[in-house]
Design a binder for these strands. Structure first.
Lengths: 346, 346
DNA sequence: CCCGGGCTTGACAACGTTGTCCAGGCTCTA
DNA sequence: TAGAGCCTGGACAACGTTGTCAAGCCCGGG
């Protein structure tokens, strides 16, 4: 058996040894190396040892890119969220990672930065990488761009907010019910003039929370003058100005319901500098909320559970579960700590 | 121009169209499609239009797995950190993502969960995926397992802690200086009996902070009885017990320096339930630390800057920067808010 | 002694893309 | 008008792995 010339004068192709190199060194065939690396049966102990020695000697590591190309599955899932740095999403991120890990998959993720174009760009980049599945915290309100990808086999689950103009799985918190319960809690403590400060209503969760606020007020027979409702961007400047506005005038509100953690923090900072106590219930829990005085009463979402549920739904789809798009709604929890139990000041 | 027979009776191969399919539909060659997709020159406007129409009609999206295999670069970087859910790492994660994005790379990440084996497994999985570079917040203390990977061309930067037994780039906070300054601050406010509660000393940052504490005490000519130093696991139970111990006895400490944010939070919860005020300076900033009363004085690290610096170093290496391993040390910042300025109680 | 069956092993094609190279048609110039 | 050179387009190999299939070997039974 002649050694081909190319084998003798082979130029140094890459620093990285391949299975072919391992096979040559071990004096076996390429496929046998593949078998050893993948733990497939049908290799004698002696051959296996020779291959393993060669692997160690060369420092070989299987190139998963080639594997992916051949097998057609990447064992990875993509996660697109609003902001990797937002503490609310950190447990969600981790929960998705845990589930992915349990299924032997890696996690590729990125932030949309609340920019629909960037969300789209990122999601499609992940599709081009052929992630097996995609979990998206949507920012935009039109996700039809994902329809071809889903049709081509990329399982997709939306989390925290539903997809726009697309029939897809979604895992959400019960924003409506949570907000309604939070506001009802303030009503139960004697408040009749309650303000709402939340995000722009084109964001699904924001709209739901505002709806919950209105429902609780209506259920208590309380009027809701337009001036008490502030739905807009949640940058600190606007939130501060709106809070001042709601607390000014002859008939100021005696309690506030804040629509997310960013708003709550801004309002807390402002209230700390004011003499007159104002009752407050916020949507989303805060680290250290229990250590403030009074503690901050909140409607808490379970972000980790959101992530876990979405990931399990995703892997269920990957395992073959079909059927119509599912919408899962997780309950929220009212955590009573003091700020929501203050009586009306007037 | 005859349509090839294969075009007429082609079996359904995969749900996903390939460049070949696009080429067949547009009536051009495979390589021409590649040129259009990659914006390479040398295609007439008319041909390009035909190709683009075919792409749209078929819903083609380039398979980056194949591209990666061919080009040998993945345009992705791996990030291994301790816990995706830890708020301290969230801004670091985000900063790395931003830099990666600016370089057109995706981010693959995972948590080591403070388990050296898991860190190793994860890092090597990322290497098998052939990420172009790797950023690691090390948990273990022996990273020689990465040497072959680095030799094979995977750029690697360690962040927050240095690599163990491996000469590699690292971006760190000045734990020693920060702790020294924090403790000196307590000394400056009249404290002479100051306790230290931190993590196990085999963790590099923990050891450095303890060293900074001792240096500040020594510089002030203060003794440090062994009983004042508690370096061990940071689970709440142990930290609570140790705090109680330091605050008990005939000569309790009048101030505490806590070695990281988990410890600080636990100690804050405990102190809130105690009548006698104890001064406190903590390493790591906390969300809402300014809203507590008193505000929590901390030695803050800039986690985002850690991440950004590490990522920039990494991409510098990828762009060809060679030379010896670099160690970058970022300054910390003492944020004075009240808890560290309380006078000694006795 | 020969044949069938099980076991181990290797040759080869295929995954979908990009780089190389060449062919053919065009324009421009002498 | 012919030849040189440029522009466009396509055939083909290669990237490193895995699936298919068949060959070679050893063993036992007829």
């Amino acid at each position: 058996m002649l050694v081909p010339v190319t084998d003798i004068a082979r130029p140094r192709r890459s620093a990285r040894p391949t299975m072919k190199d391992v096979a040559a060194r071990a004096g076996v065939g390429l496929k046998t190396v593949s078998r050893v690396v993948n733990g497939e049966p049908g290799v004698t102990a002696d051959t296996e040892r020779r291959v393993r020695d060669a692997i160690t000697a060369l420092g070989f590591r299987r190139n998963d890119s080639a594997r992916v190309l051949r097998k057609g599955t990447t064992a990875s899932v993509g996660l697109v969220l609003e902001d990797l740095a937002d503490p609310f999403y950190a447990p969600l991120n981790r929960a998705v990672e845990e589930v992915a890990r349990a299924h032997g998959a890696l996690l590729v993720n990125g932030s949309s930065a609340e920019d629909p174009d960037r969300e789209r760009e990122l999601a499609l980049a992940l599709c081009a990488r052929r992630v097996d599945g995609l979990i998206v915290v949507p920012t935009g309100d039109d996700h039809r761009y994902l329809a071809p990808e889903m049709a081509a086999g990329i399982a997709t689950v939306f989390v925290d907010r539903p997809a726009g103009r697309l029939d897809a799985d979604a895992v959400l918190s019960d924003s409506f019910g949570g907000a309604r319960d939070g506001v009802a809690h303030l009503v139960a403590h004697g408040h009749r003039r309650i303000g709402y400060i939340g995000d722009r209503p084109h964001i699904h969760t924001a709209a739901e929370r505002e709806r919950g606020y209105r429902a609780a007020m209506a259920a208590a027979g309380l009027p809701v003058p337009a001036a008490w409702v502030s739905a807009g961007p949640t940058d600190p400047d606007r939130v501060r100005a709106e809070t001042e506005r709601l607390l000014a005038g002859p008939e100021p509100v005696t309690a506030l319901f804040t629509g997310n953690n960013r708003v709550t923090v801004t309002v807390l900072r402002l209230l700390a500098a004011r003499p007159r106590p104002v009752a407050l219930v916020g949507f989303d829990d805060l680290e250290l909320a229990d250590l403030l005085s009074p503690g901050v009463t909140v409607v808490a979402q379970d972000a980790a559970r959101l992530g876990r549920t979405a990931a399990e739904l995703l892997f269920g789809r990957l395992a073959g579960a079909d059927g119509p798009a599912r919408r899962v709604e997780l309950p929220t929890r009212l955590i009573v700590r003091g700020s929501g139990e203050r009586p009306p000041a007037d």
